[in-house]
Structures are given as structure tokens and as C-alpha cells.
């Protein structure tokens, strides 16, 4: 579904990503784990078209994304839940969801999806007229995911959904991610919380200072000595 080959990204003189190649197949949960500053967010930003890439190829559903502007990528069915949630804090919960549905023209379908979202996230229904900035961190993460779901993505990129949340909430969020995946959305998950990410993923890639250093089945990687030492605390 998503194919990234030989991706190189620079920030000025800094070579942020070195020849990164990875793949996400339809229906999978794939995770990209790595330490702070390894290039995880940079990878997602280049897939979403937010930063220019130096060389390499990104293909989604057989089409190159290199010349496609960020907003058109969303229309193709590839949407991202950004790091730090980035909800529109000055808009209400409902308006945030409407922005998620910005690209859609089917009013009826959008209406149904609001119902679907409110069934999945009852807390958002209670607060739909509230200004989003007043939500708690967990609720904001749910809103960020709900907002992205409103575009009906085929592939959903999630950047650090566990960031800054209490362990119980992290569990809840990860359960929701699995549910989203079960209802037919492919997932590419970027996480520092490698334990949780590897537990729900099918496959994983390990990113270290801009290079992919290992990859494979999530369960096998979770068991491997090197990954345990580096990311799972022994």
C-alpha cells in the first residue's frame, strides 16, 4: 500500500534520513520505533508531504507522492494524526471534526460518520460544543484520532499517540488503534513506547539516527536481544 524506497531528507546541512526504505501492506499495523531524534517524525512528515524530500521515492497505492501537495495526499486516503495531537484548540470539538471532514463532499456519509465517531468516543459526544483547548490530554488525543478518521483514510499515520498520557489512557488509546485497524484502516504507528507499539503491531522497523537498522515481525523483534536492550529497558 505504502512503499518508501531510498528516502533521504535534509534539514539544511543535517542529513536527517539516510536511504530509508520500508513498506506498509494493506490491513497491517506497522510500527516505526526508535529513540528521540531518530527521525521518526521526519519520516512521517515526508510521507505526508509536509517537508521536501531530497531523494528517494514514496508510493501510495501505486502512485508517487513526490509532487503531490500535502492537502491532496489527504484526499488520496493517506491521513496523519500528528505528534502532540495538534487539535485546533480555538475551535469546538464539533468544528474540529468538521475540519477532519473538510475534503468530503458526501454530506450524508459525513453525518453517519459523526454518529459512528460519537459511538466510538462517547466522551467527545458529551463535549461536542466545548472549545477543544479545554479538553484533557487523553480527550485531545481521542479528538485528534477522531478528526483524522473523519477523512475516511485508507492509511492512517499515527505519531506518538501515547505521548504525555497516563498509562491507563495509553492502554485505552492503543485498544482504539486496534479497533480502527480491525474496521479496515491500515496503520503506520510511530512510537517511543516500543513495548506497547510492538504488542499491537504486525511488523516493525527500528530507526536509529536516520537509518533503519532492523526490521521484521513485531513479536520476533520484541524478543530480540538488541531491541530489548535498546528500547525495552533490558
Amino acid at each position: 500500500m505504502l512503499k518508501v524506497r531510498g528516502l533521504n531528507v535534509y534539514y539544511g546541512n543535517i542529513h536527517a534520513l539516510h536511504d530509508c526504505s520500508f513498506e506498509v501492506n494493506e490491513g497491517e499495523i506497522v510500527t516505526l520505533i526508535g529513540a528521540n531524534g531518530a527521525g521518526k517524525t521526519t519520516t512521517l512528515h515526508s510521507v505526508s508531504g509536509l517537508i521536501p524530500i531530497h531523494s528517494g521515492e514514496i508510493e501510495f497505492l501505486g502512485k508517487s507522492l513526490r509532487e503531490v501537495p500535502a492537502n491532496k495526499i489527504v484526499e488520496m486516503g493517506l491521513a496523519q494524526v500528528p505528534e502532540g495531537r495538534r487539535i485546533f484548540a480555538n475551535l469546538t470539538v464539533m468544528e474540529n471534526l468538521e475540519m477532519g471532514a473538510y475534503i468530503r463532499r458526501d454530506k450524508q456519509g459525513v453525518k453517519q460518520d459523526y454518529e459512528m465517531i460519537f459511538a466510538k468516543f462517547p466522551r467527545l459526544k458529551e463535549r461536542y460544543r466545548q472549545v477543544a483547548g479545554t479538553l484533557s490530554g487523553g480527550e485531545q488525543q481521542m479528538l485528534a484520532m477522531a478528526r483524522t478518521l473523519m477523512s475516511r483514510p485508507k492509511l492512517m499515520l499515527l505519531d506518538e499517540p501515547s505521548m504525555g498520557l497516563a498509562p491507563l489512557l495509553v492502554k485505552e488509546i492503543f485498544t482504539i488503534i486496534q479497533e480502527i485497524n480491525r474496521t479496515g484502516t491500515t496503520i503506520l504507528l510511530v512510537e517511543q513506547n516500543a513495548n506497547m507499539a510492538l504488542a499491537i503491531a504486525n511488523r516493525a522497523y527500528v530507526l536509529e539516527t536516520g537509518k533503519i537498522v532492523s526490521s521484521g515481525d513485531a513479536k520476533e523483534l520484541a524478543a530480540s536481544e538488541a531491541v530489548r536492550k535498546a528500547y525495552l529497558g533490558g
Partner: peptide, 24 residues
Amino acid sequence: TKLGKAMRAVSFDRQAAYLMGINV
């Protein structure tokens, strides 16, 4: 209006607006 809401969204966080598919 949808455009007005998008204006407020873009003014709050342009990058996030791009990620919603908004034609900034």
C-alpha cells in the same frame, strides 16, 4: 461557514490544517 472555520484552523495551526486536507 466551512471556509470560516478553515480560516480559524489555518490561523491556529497551518501544518495541522494541511494534514486535514485543507487547501491552505
